[in-house]
Structure formats: C-alpha cells, structure tokens
Design a binder for these strands. Structure first.
Lengths: 206, 206
DNA sequence: GTCTATAGGCGGATAGAC
DNA sequence: GTCTATCCGCCTATAGAC
C-alpha cells in the first residue's frame, strides 16, 4: 500500500478525476466563447458545476487552466480533424484532394467549436506564442506532411515541389474557411466552395 | 452665430480634435496589443495623455471607442496595404504576382502593428462580426478584385476562372503569413518564402 | 472641455470550516 | 477535496469642481 498514489506521475494540471474533466469542459465552453481575458473564473466554475476554490485546487491559476485546456484541445479533440479517415485514402488524386478540401471546409458546420478554437489560437498568439506553436505543430504541420506524402507518392503527377504544393493547397482552403465563415464574409465576397476547389485542383494537377 | 457648431455633422465618435486623435492613437496601441477585453480604459487614457473622463467625453463607452478605432484602421491606415503602388503595375505577370506576394508578406516586417491588427480582427470576429465584415469588405475584397481584374486583363494567360484564381493566390500567401509569422511557425514548419511564391506562380500560370 | 475623485461592481485568488 | 465567505485590487463609468 506504499505509494498508492504517486503524484509525480500526475501533476495537478493533468489530474484526470471527474471534477478535473468537468472543469476542463466548463473552461472550454467559456474560453472558446469569450477568449482569455474575457473569461472569468467564476463563470468557469459555474459552467463546470463546482466552486471556484475547487477550480484553483486542480489548476494553479487562470493561465495554467487556459494553457492546459488549449494543449489538450490541440493534442486531442482537434488533432485529427485535418487527417483523412482511412476510407479516404483514394488513389485517384482528384477524389482525394476534393475529399480533403471538403473535410476541412465542413469543420465550420460539423464542429461548431472549431471556429472559436481557431479564433482563440490566433487572437491569443501574441500573448501565448507557445500555444500557437503547439497548434502549428499538431494541426498545420500534420496536415502539410500528410498531403506532402500523398502528393510525393503520385509520380504520375510530376510535381516539381510536392511540399510547397501541399502548403498552397491547404493554405488556399483554410484561408477560404477564414474569410467565408470565421470573418462572416459569405455575403460580401460570395463564392461557391466547389468553384474554388475545382479551380485549385486543376491549378495543381495541371 | 446661430448653429456655430452643428453636432450632427460631427458625432462625438468622429470628432477630429487633437485630443480625439490622441485617444484613438492610445487606443490603437492598447487594443492592438491586448485585445478588447484585455484593454482597460485607464491605460488607454494614460497612453493618450488625457484623463479617463476625457476619453468618455469623446466616445460613448469602451465598445464605441473600440468600434470607431477598428473602423478607422480598416478604412484608412491598413486599407491600401494590399493594393499595388502605381509603379508596380507591371504588364509581365510573373513580376506583378511576385511583387504582390512580396508586398503582402513584407507586412509582417514593415508594419509591425499589422499582425496585431489581424489578430484582433480574427480574435474578436465572433463578438464583433460587423468589424470582421468591414475588414473583409475593405481589405480582402479590395485585393481579390484588384488581382481578379489584373488576371482577367491578361488574355494570354487563358485562365478558366480568374476570380477563383485570384482568391487562391491571395489565400495561399495570407495563410503562409499567418502560419509563419502570426503563429510563430517559422521554426516548426520552415519554408523559404520564395520557394512557396515560385511554386504558386507556376501553378497558376501553367 | 478637461480634470480629480469616487461610486459601485466584478475580477483573481485564498482562508478556513467541514 | 470541496465548499462558503471574503480579501483586495482593478474595472467601467460618472459626478462635480474649475
């Protein structure tokens, strides 16, 4: 019975009890909706269904909770959203690329919190550069690498620089998502998504 | 002497006195650095060199000052940054497109406040959708339209859809700016800017 | 018009009971 | 471990002197 609970393996900020999960869930709701400075620990506690003191017993302070929460989202919940599911591993480039573009652009509708997540990452990237870098490493870099490997594995495409091409493709799609959905630009610079995707695919595949 | 100062022509939020300009300058420094919720009216007043009561005599409240400031930036200071200066109206597409890409990517270095400006626009786009739309209308739409018109005026390019092509070009460049500079991704997903630009231009020009 | 001073509330964080 | 109650500072906004 010695060392029944070694706390070195489980630092407070990574505690996995039920309360800690509730606090992270409440913190996600509040921080993604109101940003870092706009969120109060009182409302986090209420959203989590615990007292404020309990929040501070699981996380060092507001910054520690925010950091732990974003890192969890970057490495878990939103990590695989840019990844293709296994059935999408089409050998036909046009089908593969269209599926990838659709999956990214569907995030705006299917994962309602994803837009707020990106808003927070970008909005706080000046004050929390390490969180922005975790986002780049786990989400942007992962999708760049996946598409790069796919493009490089298609010798018939004869791409001069598959890595740069991958970044152009993802960049054009993500920027479209930012302008149309995140910045509410649909009515100001309207464009059908398929029109952009078709043109992008044909530009790349020659 | 009747109606020496009609205030309908000059609503308080658009007052152009020296103090009002100082308040907008101080507000710009503070809001761009700390976001909306992270900015206090005390620090705005100090940065402007006036008392807090003077701030409230020129602007209705915090939200009114923030809104007036962002609209001024969207329509003035940052409006023409994506536009080509007259000497850049090259008839040679490769030179024109490279100049446009360089001018956008130079914003990170030449206009140090521009990255913070975009952080605030995106970060607050959920709570201030009309400011995000003003950004899209004055900056994104302006650059889309300019490049669209240029590409459409080059019949030798035989582009199937110059408007979609313009959005792909701007999108790929702006997303590169976001990942490399705004999100501090230079060391995590390194890539020379010329490598991306070269590949993008050749993808588009066939 | 601009200031100083202050009202009134909410913020993060903690003490101490259980 | 979790709660209630509280500290104290900073917040937005305004009153009133000049």
């Amino acid at each position: 019975m010695i060392q029944r609970k070694i706390s070195l393996k489980e630092p407070r900020q990574l505690s996995s009890g039920k309360k800690a999960e509730a606090i992270l869930a409440g913190g996600m709701q509040e921080f993604l909706a109101h940003g870092y400075a706009g969120t109060s620990m009182d409302r986090v506690a209420t959203a989590a269904g615990v007292s404020k003191a309990t929040v501070y017993s699981h996380f060092q302070d507001k910054e520690g909770l925010f950091t732990a929460l974003i890192e969890q989202l970057v490495q878990g919940k939103f990590r695989l959203l840019f990844e293709p599911s296994s059935e999408n591993l089409q050998p036909e480039p046009r089908i593969f690329l269209r599926g990838l573009a659709d999956r990214i652009l569907d995030l705006g509708a299917n994962e309602p919190q994803f837009l707020n997540f990106m808003r927070v990452i970008i909005g706080e990237s000046g004050r929390f550069p390490q969180l922005a870098q975790a986002f780049v490493q786990n989400i942007e870099r992962t999708s760049f690498r996946m598409l790069h490997q796919y493009l490089a594995s298609c010798p018939q495409l004869k791409l001069a620089d598959p890595e740069a091409t991958a970044r152009i493709f993802i960049g054009a799609i993500v920027h479209f998502l930012i302008v149309q959905e995140m910045l509410h630009g649909k009515d100001i610079v309207p464009m059908e998504r398929d029109r952009l995707i078709n043109n992008l695919i044909e530009s790349i595949l020659r």
